[in-house]
Simulated assay, not measured.
Amino acid sequence: MAVETAAAKSSIKCGCDGLMDYLTGDGNCQRVIYNLELLKRDISKNKVSHKLNNPAGGTGQVKVGEVCIDNLQIRFYGDNPEINPLSKQKTQEGIDFSAANSSNIVLNVNVLDKAEKDKKIEAVWGYLGDKTQENHQATFPVTGTQLHEIFPDTPQDRCDEVAALLNKYSDKFEINTPLRMAHFLGQIGVETGGLMKLQENSCYTSKSRIKKIFGKVKYCDLFEGYTSDLSKCNNDEPESCVPSLQKITSDLVIKDKYVCSPSLIDYTYSCRMGNGPSSSGDGSRFLGKGFIHLTGKGQFENISNIWNKDIENQNNKKDFVGADIDEITNDLDVAMKASMYYWGDNAINLLADEGVTNIQVNKIGAVVNGTNPPNDFEKRLEKTKSAYQILNK
């Protein structure tokens, strides 16, 4: 959720280094951080109104950058206040925010510490950042309203966030026509469950579902009575089992250890897509992430290389195989840009230019999803056609 801007590069977390990671006040520093991240996001998006439903304040110990604040308090006034995130102003106690349509104060961010109060207030102020200076108009702009019409179950706030990112990067990656944008939205919409889930689900609770999706002879270790050496690969497949499994039959039963466990993805994603054997843990570490659900160590390595070769990123290099992997799921900006690098690297715009047909959606879905036909093909087709219709209104 946190969005980093040039004016707010500091991090925030519960507790302070060198001290017990405890919670003070009402014991809810996570709630404090959650509210600050919402404010930071809205400020960076130049939002002048944010309606809060059942807001909850709190007090907790947090570390902002290198500054430890023992008691940082979030306090709301009124029921379900509508805040103007750009109205922030410093006070002797902290930072105040007024209502969207008046000067009435509806939110305080207060530093209750007595020691170094000014320094601590300044740290929070810097973390929240400033509004973004808009200096680019996309060739083919998309609005949050359009996205909400395409994905009606997705909250408007999320649609607004994604629209801003699409408009920020669409020209760079030449996703700048109704056809190209419709295909892009149709694919990422299905991959992310309506722009919401930036990481693939790895918890399969139903053994029958596991068997239906992953029940193949090469994944013999899934089944009771069959054992594979999980530390080895047989070319691009897991090692064969003892005894040998010849075919999938109705009496085969999935082992308990694979139910709602990373072990399922470690095994079924092993020995391919650049991943090592099941024991390496590569499968669950490099499962689908970002808007396009990049999958496999090889893809993460490739996107890291493409990102770092772009002169635009010379001061913002990434190691998506290592330290920066979580940014693809936790930072919407990085998630969108990384996904568009994949789109461009695979020349998908050329496929999109051929039209919104079953054949083209299938071709593009196969590139994005890695299977042919792609999973949820009908949904991809429906969302792509819907997007194309709405974008052409």
Score class of each variant (00 low, 15 high):
residue 1 M to E: 12
residue 5 T to E: 06
residue 9 K to Q: 14
residue 11 S to L: 12
residue 14 C to L: 06
residue 14 C to D: 02
residue 17 D to L: 12
residue 18 G to H: 09
residue 25 G to Q: 09
residue 36 L to N: 05
residue 49 S to V: 08
residue 51 K to N: 14
residue 56 A to G: 05
residue 65 G to R: 12
residue 68 C to Q: 10
residue 75 R to N: 14
residue 82 E to S: 14
residue 82 E to Y: 00
residue 96 D to T: 09
residue 96 D to C: 04
residue 100 A to H: 06
residue 111 V to I: 15
residue 116 E to T: 13
residue 123 A to G: 10
residue 125 W to F: 15
residue 133 Q to S: 01
residue 134 E to H: 06
residue 137 Q to I: 15
residue 138 A to C: 09
residue 144 G to P: 07
residue 154 T to M: 05
residue 165 L to S: 02
residue 168 K to R: 14
residue 172 K to H: 07
residue 172 K to T: 14
residue 184 F to H: 02
residue 194 G to A: 08
residue 201 N to G: 13
residue 202 S to F: 06
residue 203 C to T: 00
residue 203 C to V: 01
residue 208 S to V: 10
residue 215 G to F: 09
residue 215 G to A: 09
residue 217 V to H: 00
residue 217 V to K: 06
residue 217 V to W: 03
residue 218 K to C: 08
residue 223 F to S: 04
residue 225 G to I: 08
residue 229 D to C: 04
residue 231 S to I: 06
residue 235 N to S: 13
residue 238 P to R: 07
residue 240 S to M: 05
residue 241 C to T: 12
residue 241 C to V: 14
residue 244 S to T: 12
residue 250 S to H: 13
residue 251 D to K: 13
residue 251 D to G: 00
residue 258 Y to H: 04
residue 262 P to H: 08
residue 268 T to N: 00
residue 268 T to H: 07
residue 275 N to K: 08
residue 278 S to Y: 00
residue 279 S to I: 13
residue 279 S to R: 07
residue 283 G to P: 05
residue 285 R to N: 08
residue 291 F to K: 01
residue 296 G to M: 10
residue 304 S to A: 11
residue 306 I to F: 05
residue 310 D to M: 07
residue 312 E to P: 02
residue 315 N to A: 02
residue 315 N to L: 10
residue 322 G to W: 03
residue 326 D to Y: 01
residue 330 N to D: 14
residue 334 V to D: 05
residue 346 N to H: 15
residue 358 N to P: 02
residue 362 N to A: 07
residue 362 N to C: 11
residue 365 G to V: 10
residue 366 A to F: 07
residue 369 N to A: 12
residue 380 R to K: 15
residue 387 A to N: 03
residue 391 L to A: 12
residue 393 K to A: 12
